[in-house]
């Protein structure tokens, strides 16, 4: 449908690996459709040309790790009609959030030869801790089909069909054999949000929790069964301390004790 003035799309990067932006570039034919429906006003991973705001749809990748980030995300919010945080960094802090709880000064000293160059906040936080977010798209990285669904929903002014239930439901719909029950493997599927396309269980591996906690997670109930699959307390903590370590339910689960 031709519109007199197509909506402006902006893509923003904070502390992140760029993988979620790449999911957008990886949309193939759908990327062409995005180019038709939007004025791609700011997407520096794809083009140096930047058109000034305000923007109709901002996709925000990355977490907030510095004082400069805090100011910039507020500026992004002011210029954005609709703001969607994309990926585990933006929605839960990402792997950077693993440093939360440790002394930042010691960590900087251990990693960098010139610690004085580093100006980082004591904790890494998701976008929603700083500005209102209109929609949060989970995943490390996000799922391309889900991204297209969110964008298509925005264009029609409808609610995106992004389920927040467990991975188990998608796994069972697909007809895979449960790797936990039949294979005795540790699997985070029952506490993890669906959306990845059941990648790991489809190849006989337990879920790593890339999509973060599902809508009503109960890791305490899963814990004895993870133990039964052979994980000790430290291994369980590590299982939860990955891409979504900063998500409240996974953080609590990783600090849980027997």
């Amino acid at each position: 449908m031709a519109r007199s003035s197509p909506p402006k799309l902006a893509v923003w990067k904070f502390a992140s690996c760029d993988g979620c932006q790449l999911s957008l570039l990886d949309c193939g034919e759908e990327l062409l459709a995005i180019g038709v429906r939007f004025e791609v006003a700011r997407f520096t991973e794809a083009s140096r040309a930047v058109i000034r705001g305000p923007y109709d749809l901002s996709l925000v990748e990355g977490s907030i790790a510095t004082a400069a980030d805090v100011k910039r995300i507020q500026a992004v919010r002011r210029q954005s009609r609709w703001l969607v945080s994309i990926g585990a960094c933006a929605t839960a802090g990402g792997i950077q959030a693993l440093r939360n709880g440790a002394a930042i000064a010691d960590m900087v000293k251990a990693v960098y030869p010139r610690p004085d160059y580093i100006d980082a906040l004591a904790t890494v936080t998701p976008i929603a801790d700083h500005v209102p977010v209109d929609f949060a798209l989970h995943g490390c990285p996000i799922d391309r089909k889900q991204l297209i669904e969110v964008i298509a929903a925005f264009l029609e002014g409808r609610k995106p069909n992004i389920p927040t239930h467990s991975l188990c439901l998608d796994c069972k719909r697909a007809g895979f054999v449960c790797v936990l029950v039949a294979g005795g493997q540790p699997c985070l599927g029952p506490v993890t949000q669906a959306g990845c396309g059941v990648l790991c269980p489809s190849v006989g591996r337990g879920c790593y929790g890339c999509f973060g906690p599902m809508e009503a997670p109960n890791p305490a109930a899963l814990r004895p069964w993870l133990r039964r699959s052979g994980l000790d307390a430290e291994a369980i903590a590590r299982l939860y301390r990955t891409f979504n370590a900063g998500a409240a339910a996974f953080r609590a689960a990783s600090n849980d004790h027997d």
Partner: peptide, 28 residues
């Protein structure tokens, strides 16, 4: 003790509930 994962309903041979989703493509 319940994970709320929904596995019991998916493996149940009589659970018949479904949801209906409407979606649109990017081209509109």
């Amino acid at each position: 003790r319940c994970l709320g994962c929904g596995t019991c309903t998916a493996v149940c041979p009589t659970c018949f509930c479904s949801t209906v989703e409407d979606s649109t493509d990017l081209a509109g």
